[in-house]
Amino acid sequence: MQVRTYQQSGVDLDRAQALIRAIAPLASQTYNESVLQGVGGFFGAYAMPSGYKEPVLISCTDGVGTKLKLAKEARQLYNLGLDLVAMNVNDLICAFAKPLFFLDYFATSKLEPSQTLALIEGMAKGCKEAGCALIGGESAQMPGVYAPREFDLAGFCVGVAEKSDLNKKDNIQAGDILVGFKSSGLHSNGFSLVREILKSKPKSAPSLDTLLTPTKLYTPLLALKDKIHALAHITGGGLRGNLERVLPPTLSAQIELKALPDMPVFSWLKEHLELAECLKVFNMGVGMVAIAPCENLKVLEKAGGFYLGTLKSGAQEIIFLE
């Protein structure tokens, strides 16, 4: 067949336009008075909110990694949209920033409307829960780059913070405590390793529903920012890798392993991996850690937190105590 149209080469523009029309009402559910232009144009526009003394825009981007491979097998793409929003927003709030708006990038060989809409529906739900607007995105058809029915996605989030809040971690000192906030499960990290374990078809493997439990959003912690010196989102790299990102060079963090939540999915991982590897890769039941003055423990416990450890003087390192 002689190729004479874009559609014959594998790119269906009519389907893309129809998809944009279907996405618009989903996105509009997340809009607020600050949205000046949303999905459908060449750009999204959002008015800077008032009430800030020295507003600073905070941005982040993230994806969901190879969790999408399992999500496709389980046909749980809706939850994958939730994951995409949560992974970005949870990074954002480590700057004590209020999420303002979210954009996505979805690339595939050929647009499948039901597949894409399921993802967008999940993103819209996540945005509503996080209090941010879904104001734009891109759905790219790239046959030859992606195999049939394969896709990848990324998210982008912008928020606003007070400039002074960016320096809150300068207040961290010896004697401060680590307060953990429970994860909903694996969140969206370590799935390349999880999939390798699953290849051996272990009899005790958790269900796909358990493995694909959506990432928890921690936006309620913004209301407690005056009680917290720093937040660390526990993603790839585990507790050690992510706490080091906020820990001053003159302090060490001592984490009590007995304080980690007892969750079946992590017990299963410990059956197949050394504990050190689990701690290096997974959140082990702790999705967010707050560093706070010890006198604020009760307030943070009321918000769902639990004592995880303490900070001591010494070289910057993370110590796990049995």
Rank of each mutant, 00 (worst) to 15 (best):
E274Q: 14
L243E: 07
L308N: 02
A292F: 01
L92P: 04
I318F: 03
S192E: 14
S9W: 12
D226F: 05
A18Q: 15
L211Q: 00
L80H: 04
Y146M: 10
V64C: 13
H272D: 01
A259G: 02
Y307H: 14
S192A: 15
G81R: 00
V85E: 04
L13N: 08
G305I: 04
I319A: 03
V299T: 15
A205K: 01
T215I: 02
I319G: 07
G81A: 09
E322H: 12
G137D: 05
L308T: 00
E54Q: 13
Y307M: 11
Y31I: 02
Y52S: 10
A24F: 05
K125G: 00
G190F: 08
L221E: 03
A18F: 09
A205Y: 04
L119S: 02
L186M: 11
T215G: 09
L221C: 09
N296A: 13
I20A: 12
K258W: 01
S139C: 12
K53C: 03
E162D: 10
A140F: 09
S114K: 10
G237I: 05
Q254G: 00
K110F: 08
E244T: 05
G137Y: 01
V160M: 06
L57A: 12
Q141Y: 06
L80D: 04
T219R: 12
P99H: 08
M48D: 04
N167H: 14
A97N: 09
P220M: 10
E271N: 12
F306H: 02
Q2A: 13
C127N: 08
G81M: 02
L103W: 00
S183Q: 08
K203D: 15
A74W: 01
T213C: 11
V3L: 11
P143H: 05
L311T: 03
F106H: 10
G241K: 07
K182A: 14
A205I: 08
D209W: 01
E256H: 12
A147H: 07
E322S: 11
T250M: 06
P206V: 01
F43C: 10
F43S: 15
S164F: 05
P99S: 11
G65M: 09
A47N: 06
V145L: 15
E301T: 13
K312F: 06
V246L: 13
A303H: 07
L300I: 09
M263K: 09
K72C: 11
F102Q: 04
Q17H: 13
M284R: 05
M263P: 00
A292N: 04
A124Q: 05
L321H: 12
L208C: 03
G65T: 07
A140N: 11
F306V: 04
A95W: 12
K203S: 15
M263Y: 06
E33K: 11
M142I: 12
H187G: 13
I197V: 09
S267P: 05
R21G: 15
L308A: 08
C132N: 06
A107E: 08
K199P: 01
L224T: 08
P113A: 11
K298S: 14
P99Q: 07
I177H: 07
L231Y: 06
L103I: 10
D83P: 03
T310I: 09
D62T: 10
L84M: 06
